[in-house]
Design a protein around this nucleic acid. Structure first.
Lengths: 131, 131
DNA sequence: GCTTGACCTTGTAGTGGCTACAAGGTGCAT
DNA sequence: ATGCACCTTGTAGCCACTACAAGGTCAAGC
């Protein structure tokens, strides 16, 4: 499979696939006579794995570790579990922070009565008011 | 006021203040005889404005615009209002996306029974299962 | 056989919003 | 005169890509 085909199949863009290879997160595949990357199903599976983990917000170092762990069939998956839990915690914290932002923005906007700038409650809130 | 003092007063680090100046978001202050930046209260107020807007998640281009608008006292603040509303929408969308992540992560983790990797439901979910 | 166009190759630079560092100058207390 | 905190400039690094430039390869159509 050439890179374009595997890109279509996995939903990972060709540029991104090359980037993963440069980063050492995806093994370099063999090349055809004309120096094109030639992928098999294993690489495609790895790419799908990476894409799903990215969709779930895992960082590249996390994914690197998940990939390594996924090869050690006999080990306990406690490490996987704790990595996932730590990430979940981070996501929860990010949500909480954004909710604070959302509420503060909502309050600020609600006070605006579309006057002139000099009366604007939004500018006012940013410039002067206590938090 | 030297940069360190204004940094302490505004909660914006000295490096970041210099960065804002380079980016043209904060006016370059006069210099002392020894070439140190010499800030007045107006610059400090601008920095507090920027910090609050950053805390609310506004982007640098947004802040640039808010700062420009904040100087035009006579104009309607409709532009400010719509900028803030657009940003609020974005924050809401980000929260929604993170909540999807959170729920999927939670489900994945809940299924893990701390077996060996070969049985790990987390690795399994990433590698094989449909979404 | 020649062109067209889709695909591939490498390498480099840009994104955002800082942050860290290096190498050196200044100001004040001891 | 020495030490230390502070300041200066400039450059590179962070993350996870994305975009672009300049060129090579291959199959189809004329």
């Amino acid at each position: 499979m050439k890179i374009g085909e595997v890109a279509r199949k996995t939903g990972v863009k060709a540029e991104t696939i090359r980037f993963y290879e440069r980063e050492g997160i995806l093994n370099a595949p063999p090349r055809t006579r004309s120096n094109y990357r030639d992928y098999g199903p294993a690489e495609a599976a790895t790419l799908v794995f990476i894409r799903r983990a990215r969709d779930l917000g895992f960082s590249m170092p996390d994914i690197r570790e998940l990939l390594e762990l996924s090869n050690e069939d006999d080990r306990s998956c406690a490490a996987v579990d704790s990595l996932a839990r730590a990430h979940l915690d981070q996501v929860k914290r990010k949500i909480a922070a954004l909710q604070v932002m959302r509420d503060e923005l909502s309050r600020m906007i609600a006070k605006c009565e579309q006057d002139t700038i000099s009366e604007c409650r939004i500018i006012d809130t940013l410039a002067v008011r206590d938090r």
